[in-house]
């Protein structure tokens, strides 16, 4: 299980990693420990499956991408097949099976409306897909994936 220090480390690195040559040394100082300990714990947390990654998160709009949320209603026996087809598109970053009247939800980022249209046209035509909702974002109020441990 997660120790008190592990939780502190995960909270701190989720918050933000400093843009500094030695970012983990800064985190270490804040948590009153040393850089070596931070690196060792993070590596262990990653191996144990608690830490997914440390990454840079960009505003996709600013990079010229447009994002949409898509919901599909798929007949249950076809769902795994459809989910795998959806996964093949590199612009699909999140794809979740959910309970409810629409059971497969994914996000799609592309560089053009044409590209989005083509991909969705192809997915809509898959066997087992009964309905599709395309819900492009109008306004982003929050994107902050942070879990307080």
């Amino acid at each position: 299980m997660l120790s008190a220090l592990d939780k502190k480390i995960l909270n701190a690195v989720q918050e933000e990693l400093p843009l500094d040559s030695r970012p983990f040394a800064i985190i270490a100082e804040r948590l009153h420990t040393d850089e070596e300990t931070i690196l060792t714990r993070l590596e262990t947390l990653r191996k144990d499956g608690f830490l997914r990654r440390i990454g840079a998160y960009f505003d996709s709009d600013a990079l010229g991408y447009q994002g949409t949320l898509v919901a599909l209603r798929v007949i249950p026996e076809k769902l795994p097949e459809v989910a795998e087809k959806v996964n093949r598109f590199s612009g699909v970053t999140h794809n979740y099976e959910r309970e409810g009247e629409y059971n497969l939800w994914f996000t799609l980022q592309t560089v053009s409306a044409d590209q989005t249209r083509e991909i969705l046209h192809e997915l809509h035509a898959l066997p087992g897909v009964e309905d599709m909702l395309e819900l492009p974002s109008a306004k982003k109020y929050k994107v902050r994936v942070q879990f307080r441990l």
Binding site: L10, V13, Q14, E15, E16, L17, L19, P23, G49, F50, L51, R52, R53, I54, G55, A56, Y57, F58, D59, A62, L63, V143, V145, F147, L149
Partner: peptide, 10 residues
């Protein structure tokens, strides 16, 4: 353009 550098947990 960059929102942040940080960790994503499972």
């Amino acid at each position: 353009v960059l929102r942040r550098v940080g960790a994503v947990i499972q």
